[in-house]
Design a protein around this nucleic acid. Structure first.
Lengths: 124, 124
DNA sequence: GGGTTCTTGATTATCTTTTCCCAAGAAGGC
DNA sequence: GCCTTCTTGGGAAAAGATAATCAAGAACCC
């Protein structure tokens, strides 16, 4: 059903090579290195198509428009650098989440977001 | 400088009585119980005014427009009920956050969001 | 109580993100 | 290579949240 176009290949490649969640605009910028004429509408269309295929997952951070990352990575969280505005993956998970859940509440999932400076932006 | 109007009193009261973060629309609905003619523009204006006064703090959750809560509550997190869409405060904090921060990254703050059903929405 | 200045309410405008529209172009099957 | 169908690009438009405008109304000071 879905055709294999230059644009879609460029979009997938950009997401794979980035290795961290990208905003639609970031995705456009990166994929345009491969396909100069790529338009933002095509990026949005392919984000939806790749989501429908289960290839792409949405990463929502507080106060930010959505970013997207390759699906199937297993449980992880994110680190948002306040200087370069990029989002990185964080392995692991702080324990004992059920312990702080209020009585009578049913905990189904959780998100954890770290903020600060990434290794590139930290003054040494 | 700021005057003590019926509208501002109603807005402050709604936030204090709710005891959890409110969206501008929720705030409008609640404050309108006291001042029927209250308009949404006044809500937004007073949110800004109360923020400037340091009386109000912004609560940002992933993929959601901002909510607001009374400032000065000390460190806490939030629980978002997927059924009633309300946001509750969560005391405490899972430990060992520094441990999962990647090497070379400087951790400055963190947010933690729980999802599920609140006590009212949990089937007993 | 009067006057100045701030605030309000309603509407309109703005901003940002995302989607729609449609003619032109490209993929894939045969 | 041809034909059908899907995809693209670009501009226009939708959608949602927030801010600006301005005349009318309310607070506060004296």
């Amino acid at each position: 059903m879905h055709r294999d176009t230059r644009q879609r290949r460029a979009i997938r490649r950009a997401l794979e090579e980035a290795g961290h969640p990208l905003s639609p605009q970031e995705l456009l910028d990166l994929a345009q290195e491969e396909v100069r004429t790529l338009g933002i509408a095509t990026v949005y269309r392919n984000i939806r198509a790749l989501q429908d295929d289960g290839w792409l997952e949405t990463v929502e951070l507080p106060g930010e428009p959505p970013r997207y990352e390759v699906a199937g990575k297993g449980h992880h969280h994110h680190f948002h650098c306040r200087d370069c505005d990029r989002v990185f993956e964080v392995e692991g998970c702080p324990g004992n989440i059920q312990a702080i859940t209020p009585d009578g509440f049913k905990l189904e999932r959780h998100e954890f977001v770290l903020y600060g400076l990434c290794d590139t932006c930290t003054p040494s």
